[in-house]
Amino acid sequence: MRNPLSKRIVEIEPSGIRKFFDVVNEMEDAISLGVGEPDFDTPWHIRDEGIYSLEKGRTFYTSNAGLKELKVEIAKYMNRRFDLTYDYEHEIMVTVGGSEAIDIAMRAMLDPGDEVLIPQPSYVSYVPCAVLANGIPSIIELKAENEFRLTAEELEAAITPKTKLLVLPFPNNPTGSIMRRSDLEAIAKVILEHDLFVLSDEIYSELTYGEEEHVSIASLPGMWERTITINGFSKSYAMTGWRLGYACGPRVIIEQMLKIHQFAIMCAPTTSQYAAVEALRNGDEDVAQMKEEYDGRRRYLLHRFKEMGLECFEPYGAFYMFPSIRKFGMTSEEFATKLLEAEKVAVVPGTAFGASGEGFVRISYAYSLDDLKKALERIEKFIVTL
């Protein structure tokens, strides 16, 4: 019998995040700090709108690109939050989560042999999506001494004549690092000089802490026309299971992305789209309240890490910490495995997000403060034994 499988698919490694999550599900009295999912319920007024849409029988396909009302609200949101202007009819499309937007953007933009620059540590989907789109992933290893920000020098050194697309994953999963305006201005010069395009994954944009707000690279001079901005509702509105994201960018790219979406997906879930309209119209206060809670947890973890002597730079984005475990003389995988076995606490090895994550583990603080306190007590107990 002939091999039924694609060699390219077989060679793609499964997600390193799910491994520990699956184990902890079978373990009694275990605490998982491994999954990047808000512990908040979707706010009631957003859920109500989804329920109401079902009661009204709004269960049919929407336009392939999404509900007009939703695209209009997305355009308003992008303008008021990030000073970006998009035509809702031709420059915005609604997707099944931000992950679909990443996938179809790469498929729409890459030809075989095109290089995709992917800073790591970063979200696990970028490399597989580049491979599936016939692109060639080229990894830029971010450095702890730079707080895992991408520098203009690192970008310049990675560019070749085949480079076409840069993935910009900030605020970053798994490190929590962010790019300030000055950081973005520096790399924008390099991008313009080499005529590159940017896939800017800004799913955590609302979860930016400190005095400076999130800045989208598309808002910088010369960058709008070469940037696809990815965002969604999972993280900021606690709507992971609703599976809704969106992409904004130049019409010439969005139209081709929409073509793939038409054939592969048809449209995003109708109920989720109606709920998302309510989220954008009346959800700012919900986002602010959740952000304040996350920030309190962030500061608590930094305090506890300092108490137990666990080295960690201060992250200003998302809901992750990326402490160093190098001094314990173990690989990230060994540390995470032994911690799970000894104290029933699940964290994710840094290597799940690329080789440059070696020596670190990802800890999510998208969990209640009570759970975080219990988990940190167990982690401290484990560290003492080392």
Score class of each variant (00 low, 15 high):
244 L>S: 03
234 S>I: 01
266 M>S: 04
227 T>H: 13
263 F>N: 10
227 T>A: 03
225 E>Q: 11
224 W>V: 00
241 G>T: 03
268 A>T: 03
268 A>V: 11
245 G>P: 03
253 I>E: 10
244 L>W: 05
280 L>M: 14
244 L>Y: 02
263 F>S: 07
239 M>K: 06
273 Q>W: 00
251 R>W: 09
269 P>W: 14
236 S>V: 06
226 R>L: 09
278 E>W: 01
244 L>I: 15
232 G>E: 08
238 A>Y: 11
251 R>C: 04
252 V>E: 15
222 G>M: 12
223 M>D: 09
237 Y>P: 01
243 R>C: 08
234 S>A: 12
231 N>E: 04
252 V>H: 10
254 I>L: 10
256 Q>E: 15
232 G>A: 02
280 L>C: 07
270 T>W: 13
273 Q>G: 07
252 V>A: 14
232 G>H: 03
274 Y>P: 07
232 G>N: 05
276 A>I: 12
233 F>G: 01
258 L>T: 07
269 P>S: 08
278 E>A: 11
278 E>M: 12
244 L>E: 10
227 T>N: 03
283 G>D: 04
230 I>D: 00
253 I>T: 12
243 R>P: 00
232 G>I: 04
261 H>W: 04
229 T>V: 14
232 G>W: 06
270 T>E: 03
262 Q>H: 03
234 S>P: 00
256 Q>C: 07
224 W>H: 12
225 E>H: 12
284 D>C: 01
273 Q>T: 03
259 K>E: 15
220 L>H: 10
224 W>Y: 03
228 I>L: 13
240 T>E: 11
267 C>G: 05
230 I>L: 04
276 A>R: 01
286 D>N: 14
278 E>G: 01
249 G>P: 01
221 P>Y: 07
223 M>H: 11
236 S>N: 12
254 I>Q: 12
275 A>T: 05
279 A>T: 08
225 E>D: 15
277 V>G: 03
280 L>V: 07
246 Y>W: 09
262 Q>E: 14
218 A>M: 10
265 I>C: 01
259 K>S: 06
248 C>H: 04
234 S>V: 00
267 C>Y: 06
252 V>I: 12
256 Q>V: 12
268 A>E: 02
254 I>C: 09
272 S>V: 02
285 E>W: 04
275 A>C: 01
261 H>C: 08
263 F>W: 10
240 T>P: 00
224 W>G: 00
262 Q>I: 08
